[in-house]
Write a protein that binds this DNA or RNA. Structure first.
Lengths: 339, 339
DNA sequence: TAAAAATATGACAACGTTGACATAAATTTT
DNA sequence: AAAATTTATGTCAACGTTGTCATATTTTTA
């Protein structure tokens, strides 16, 4: 077992060719005779030669991309990572994961560092970072390729390729489902004015109510964030009121989990006494009892698409902005009763 | 906005010094006059110069490490990632995540590629990969630094620094807790002969029963893996038997979730009719109803420790094998009744 | 005050690869 | 059969750093 890793020159020496020819074989370039090709390949196998990625990177554009997220929600992140990774592996790219705190004000500087040092050639941005137009522009100004995943029924602009996810339509559909089951007093949990996904789902909720001839009651729209604890607090708040809802739309499954938990604490049977729906189709929504009716969010697919767009952007030096929209499907399970 | 990224030579030119001097300033080397140091730093700030990581890597050992895992359990992975990342950021290291399929037989080849290409200088191995002695040796033979996380009350050998987690003790403790509440028929769900964590927890379970003067009943030990579906299937199997247990030890929280779900399907109240404990203190265990009594597994800490060991191993060229053990604490919640 | 030591700076090679260009050999065209 | 073209191979300079060594300057020591 030799102590140093073999280089392209070691292979060349042993195969009796110039190291450039080895480079040609490795990179599958044209104009290499079959004779030499097989000979070189044999030596490569014999020495177990691996091209030095670092050295190669000095001559080529970086083939790493960063996945930037600010989300404590673990399965969401893992699913996205796996989706991105599937693309990266196909194309020989490397993934740098970059969890961050969007409120720290450090994000631009952090990303500037990894871009400026040539650590990555592009980034995938998720909400809420992806909604920061200025951030996107500043990254673009540094020659970085950017793809963003946002909530919306259309891309907000043509700054960069954008994956948009139609929360509004899905919020509309799931609310309409509740209405179809006879529910009239439907609470919305997890409204947040700075959170695009929340707003989209809220707009869908409102549209469905309007379509059914109902008005949106302020009493039933509770502000909070996308956590279990917030779900508990919002549900408590709601249940303390006089006029209780018959159904409850949690802006994500964690909120719905908090609602489910709180309902149990109050001896309310779900769905008999209270129907609950979530959003995201997280593992929790499948594994709890009753299983939650929710909206499936194909995170792996969404992220894979983002990675595919980013990689093609990095390979071909195009500035073209191909966008891609995702529609979300309802997942009907056991947490909704028919009135 | 210039189109090319500034290099060390650009800084040198502007500061009127040789590029080597700039290198000295950047790397904080001795023997640079304060005068020149401040001048160079000013130019660096002015040009917003970032040393090119790739070029630097050509002259130094890689400062990236790989986190290798084969685990669909998302929060476990995310927690570990975050723990590792906290260390990486402190020390300026980069994390390459490498999910893999340990049964594919490809793992060695995959790792050989990322090590051989100098993409990473070390790897963190998790079960079941970390239990593969031969794999560890082959990685070591490639000059890679290796740290592994295993289940056990002591490191299995001195091949490499090892983080060992005492599943047996924790399995003992939680079983004893069940016994202390008066339970005598305690089922063990998720026995798996090839799974060290499962075996450790099982040994603890057996030891606790023996200590209480009970024998281990084969009827109550169910084989299966660490998934929700398996938990459901195992619980079904158990409940179909005549002599039902009063308590149930799920080898992890997912199994316990499956058990909880199945108990509900059978109209069994938890914990009144059946007590259930899990293992891992996953988000699920906190968010379900009743909240699960379980064992806290400090994944982020464990992984951070692994990363710290690996990084120090990569920096100082030591072969010393520092190990580190973790004890796991019981988390008492609402899924156990007192008989 | 000369010699020695410490401090500060620079010149240049190296890291392992790819790209631009040169050239040699084989094949096709005229 | 000569010229032009295609195919196959090689030479060498980059890429942006860090390490080695040389050298210039300053300070300390004898």
């Amino acid at each position: 077992m030799s102590s140093k890793k073999p280089t392209i020159k070691d292979v060349a020496r042993l195969a009796g060719v110039s190291f450039k020819t080895v480079s040609r074989v490795v990179n599958n370039e044209a104009w290499v005779s079959d004779d030499i090709k097989t000979r070189v390949q044999a030596v490569i196998a014999q020495l177990n030669y691996q091209p030095n990625r670092t050295a190669r990177l000095m001559r080529t554009a970086p083939f790493s991309l960063a996945f930037v997220y600010d989300n404590p929600n673990s399965h969401y992140v893992i699913e996205m990572q796996n989706g991105i990774l599937s693309q990266c592996r196909q194309k020989g790219f490397e993934l740098v994961i970059h969890p961050t705190d969007s409120h720290s004000g450090q994000v631009l500087q952090e990303l500037t560092t990894i871009i400026g040092s040539n650590q990555v050639g592009g980034v995938i941005l998720t909400p809420p970072l992806s909604e920061n137009r200025e951030l996107v522009q500043q990254l673009l100004a540094q020659q970085a390729k950017v793809v963003r995943i946002v909530s919306g029924s259309a891309p907000p602009d043509d700054l960069c390729p954008t994956i948009y996810v139609d929360d509004e339509q899905a919020g509309f559909n799931i609310t309409r489902h509740l209405l179809a089951q006879g529910h009239r007093r439907i609470a919305f949990l997890g409204y947040h004015k700075d959170h695009q996904s929340s707003l989209g789902r809220y707009r869908g909720y409102c549209a469905a109510l309007r379509e059914a001839g109902l008005t949106v009651s302020e009493q039933l729209v509770i502000t909070g964030d996308f956590t279990f604890d917030s779900g508990v607090a919002m549900t408590e708040q709601l249940l303390q009121r006089g006029d209780k809802p018959t159904a409850l739309f949690g802006c994500n499954d964690e909120i719905a989990a908090g609602a489910l938990f709180t309902a149990r604490m109050h001896q309310l049977a779900v769905p008999q006494d209270l129907s609950i729906v979530g959003f995201e189709n997280s593992p929790f929504s499948r594994q709890t009892w009753p299983r939650l009716t929710t909206v499936h969010q194909p995170n792996a697919e969404i992220a894979a698409k983002a990675a595919a767009l980013l990689i093609s952007l990095m390979l071909e030096n195009e500035t073209q902005t191909a966008h891609c929209g995702f529609e979300l499907q309802l997942v009907l399970r056991d947490s909704v009763s028919t009135l």
